[in-house]
Amino acid sequence: MGVKHYFKLWIIFLSCNLQSKISHKLDFILGILATIFMQGCSFIFLWSIFSQIDVLSGWSFYEISILFGYISIANGLEEIFLNGTWELPGIYIRRGELDRLLTRPVNPLFLILANCMELHGVGSFLFGIVIMIHSFVQLGASLSFVNILFVFISIISSTVIFFSINLITGTLSFWVTDSMPAMVMVQRLNQLGQYPINIYNKVIKFVLTWVVPFAFVSYFPVDFILNSNMLGLFSPIFACVFFSLAYSFFKLSLKRYESAGG
């Protein structure tokens, strides 16, 4: 099956998802509002702090806003397109729904992702874009075409890194009874990436850079755009490496899958 076929299939899934969302209209609208409010809430915290000081660890308000917007966009994208990993421990493995997917002539990971699109991620995606553009304008940064291209590519890479981390922790469910707590734990760590990593101590910095690479998700790419920190260039490479690691882990674990029966 070629890419074209997959794309067609994906569009069908998208329209199914949309239809089911629209049947619960109010819940859907509230969901979008909620994602905006949640991002807005941390943003107001940031604003309040910067009403007291001018610079946080060498970063100005608008620079950190860009970091904020950047994460919101990547989070939103991940929620919209790649949220299915969250269903892996409970629905697919413990309840054995994975059986159903394995009988189909399509890549199971594709089905897992296409089945579950959390469209309310649109909220944090749009919020991020508004914040980011506004901050760039306020900073008076003149972005060249190459820069914009880099922002584009690195946001995609960040989304992929988010996803790969979730895929790894989700796939752990093949090996232990329930890896959901581990997933939540690791995912929560991404809050650490909302601020310049220099405010943390050495241990946390090391973990964020090399163990759970949330620094590559947000801090390094934005640091590259603003201060040309060359580590930011590694973000796309990191994304590729991380994704192939996560995917081979998933493939390997799939061989181990014993259905829950029923």
Binding site: L26, D27, F28, L30, G31, I32, L33, A34, T35, M38
Partner: peptide, 14 residues
């Protein structure tokens, strides 16, 4: 009435 709590919960939480 709303048939779902996700949005409402996080809206309230924020």
């Amino acid at each position: 009435v709303i048939s779902g709590y996700w949005g409402l919960y996080y809206l309230k939480k924020a």
